[in-house]
């Protein structure tokens, strides 16, 4: 009885995995076929080939796109960690007039969808001359209410006595922040980092608006370019590019999945 249930459970798990993994596997298989095989509609390659990967790197500056995406996502993540943790620290540990009011203002920003502000933001970036520059892709995303909120929840778990002990021994606020608060909040910081990186890597509308130069375009826009240029003739190349583009985030997710699961809950439901 128990064994039968276990078997049924595993069968169900495998079925779901097949369905979920299918698009990825499909893309991978297509990327390893030559054009004729794809057009013939095969599912399993007869001759395994890497020509599509070579072509992907030759026909488009895919390496450049990947680097751009990586750099932009990395800088957004870094900036978010710094900006959010500073604000969260002030909200949890410092006592100053108007603190709660500022906190509500920060939380209120969750009400505003990015899309509702995108037009003036585009005009601002244009006026600043930041179009086709990394800064234009990075800086607007540094402040993040969710990040502040998540880290605030975490910082609140740190016993207040630690802060008082620090004050008594003359450990300044900034020193306490760097030497105690940040090391004690590793899980939440990693969570926020993974989440931010995926989020930034996934960004589409904004880079579409503020870049039209291969030197700064991200991989999402690169895929779009590739897809519009190529059409039917070389689907294999597009699939090869897609497989390459999914690797970094997939690896990050595999590495950070557990942390992400633990950390997200802290900020999400409290």
């Amino acid at each position: 009885m128990r064994a039968a249930r276990a078997t049924a459970h595993y069968v169900l798990l495998c079925l779901c995995s097949v369905v979920i993994l299918f698009p990825v596997a499909y893309a991978l298989l297509m990327s390893l076929m030559d054009g004729a095989a794809i057009l013939s509609g095969r599912l399993w390659p007869e001759n395994w080939t890497l020509v599509n990967y070579e072509a992907a790197f030759q026909q488009a500056p895919l390496g450049r796109y990947l680097w751009n995406s990586f750099f932009v996502a990395f800088m957004i993540t870094l900036g978010r960690l710094i900006v959010s943790s500073l604000a969260a620290f002030a909200f949890v540990f410092l006592r100053f007039p108007g603190r709660d009011r500022w906190f509500y203002i920060c939380i209120a920003t969750m009400l505003v969808p990015w899309e509702a502000t995108v037009i003036p933001n585009f005009l601002t970036i244009q006026a600043l001359g930041w179009t086709n520059h990394y800064v234009g892709l990075i800086v607007p995303f540094w402040a993040m209410a969710f990040g502040i909120f998540l880290l605030r929840q975490q910082f609140k778990q740190i016993p207040h006595e630690l802060y008082e002990a620090a004050q008594l021994s003359g450990i300044g606020n900034f020193r306490f922040f760097c030497r105690v608060v940040l090391p004690l909040s590793k899980t939440s910081l990693v969570t926020l980092a993974v989440y931010s990186f995926l989020d930034a890597w996934n960004m589409y509308l904004w880079p579409l608006l503020v870049t039209n130069d291969d030197r700064v375009r991200t991989v999402q826009i690169g895929l779009k370019q590739l897809q519009t240029q190529e059409i039917a003739s070389s689907w294999g190349v597009v699939m090869a590019a897609a497989v390459i583009a999914m690797l970094p985030t997939l690896l990050l997710l595999f590495a950070g999945q557990k942390q992400l699961r633990k950390g997200l809950m802290q900020g999400a439901i409290q």
Binding site: I20, V24, L198, L223, M246, L253
Partner: peptide, 8 residues
């Protein structure tokens, strides 16, 4: 894993 799939 699909969380690691970007929109593109």
């Amino acid at each position: 894993s699909t969380m690691g799939m970007s929109v593109g």
